[in-house]
Amino acid sequence: MPYVRSVNVGGPQEVTWLGRPVVTGIFKRPVEGRVRVRRHNLEGDGQADLEKHGGEYKAVYAYAREDLDFWAGELGRDLSDSAMGENLTTVGLDVTGAVIGERWRIGSALLEVVQPRRPCFKLGLRLGDPDFPQRFGPAARPGAYLRVLEEGELGAGDEIVVEHRPAHGVTVGLVAYAYFHDKSLAPRVLAAPELAPGARQTWERFRRHAG
């Protein structure tokens, strides 16, 4: 059974990156015990740039331990849980293959997959590698942003029960691949009605331009 290996939270902090100060919430740490899942985030978690991070459609970010291990091999160094700034480090769940609109029951919370991550420079900051975002996106191992359908509590060790999987088959991996490699797939991406509204607007533009 898939499960949550760690629950990771952290608030905004100022760091120096490439010679300038940056405020970021990407430095998260595993926490013990039960964590409250709220509509826009996990209790104790925070984001610095609320235009690009957080909110209803980026309330929780999940990344697979298996994908962290892939990147550890690519980078030639160990990567700890939370290395991608994720809130939930999962085991035994194909996060890349998760379908947009898929619903996960974790503890007493119900979460819905709504979009993949598109990397910004802060991912390079987190890993100490300014070129890493350019590698992360095209690899199509984006992790999944989740919205909260039912608030509750969860913790490390909780099983992840997939309660619903839409039949359209549009996965977070497909959306990420389409964005970085083939935007002509826009009609396929838009077949997922559960796609986050902001992402849907972007893909509607891609479809119009392709036409």
Rank of each mutant, 00 (worst) to 15 (best):
T171D: 05
A210H: 10
E159S: 15
D78I: 01
E150M: 03
E51G: 03
Q13R: 15
A186E: 12
P116M: 08
L125M: 15
L42W: 09
N87F: 06
W203K: 07
S6M: 07
F132R: 00
R39H: 07
A98L: 08
A62C: 02
Y177N: 02
Y145E: 12
E51N: 10
Y145V: 09
I106N: 01
G11W: 02
R39L: 06
C120A: 03
R205F: 09
V23N: 02
R77N: 02
R20P: 04
G211S: 13
D158V: 01
Y179G: 01
Y63H: 15
R118V: 15
P193C: 10
W17S: 01
E204D: 00
Y179Q: 02
G33F: 03
Y3P: 00
E51D: 13
L68D: 09
D158S: 08
F70P: 13
L111F: 05
V15K: 09
R126K: 15
C120V: 01
P30D: 06
R20A: 14
P12Q: 01
G101C: 02
K183A: 09
Y63S: 15
D49N: 12
L18C: 02
E51V: 11
E151C: 04
Y3N: 07
V172N: 11
G152W: 06
R39T: 08
L111G: 13
G198W: 08
E204A: 04
D129C: 02
R188E: 12
K122G: 06
R34Y: 03
H209C: 03
L185Q: 10
R200H: 00
P187C: 09
R188A: 13
Y179K: 08
F180K: 03
P197G: 08
E51H: 14
I160L: 03
V7H: 10
E74M: 15
A156L: 12
L75I: 09
F206W: 11
L79T: 01
A139E: 10
P197L: 06
T90M: 13
G101A: 00
T16F: 12
G137W: 01
E43W: 08
V148L: 02
F206R: 06
A62R: 06
L50W: 02
R65N: 11
S82V: 04
E14Y: 00
L195H: 07
R207C: 03
P116K: 07
I106P: 05
D131Q: 07
A176Y: 05
F180D: 11
D81L: 08
E66M: 02
E32Q: 15
S184V: 00
L149T: 03
V23R: 14
I106M: 05
P30I: 05
R147G: 00
R208N: 02
R188Q: 14
A196T: 03
A210D: 04
H168G: 00
L146P: 13
V31W: 10
A109T: 00
V114Y: 12
Q134E: 12
A178I: 00
L68S: 15
R105E: 14
V15F: 04
F27V: 08
F27D: 12
A48T: 00
T171H: 04
L42I: 05
K58E: 12
H209I: 10
L146N: 11
D45N: 05
P119D: 15
T202D: 09
D158G: 03
L154Y: 06
P193H: 09
R126N: 06
G173Q: 01
A196Y: 03
V161F: 10
H181C: 02
A48I: 00
L75V: 11
R29Q: 14
G85Q: 08
V60G: 04
H40A: 12
P166G: 02
D67T: 10
V60Q: 08
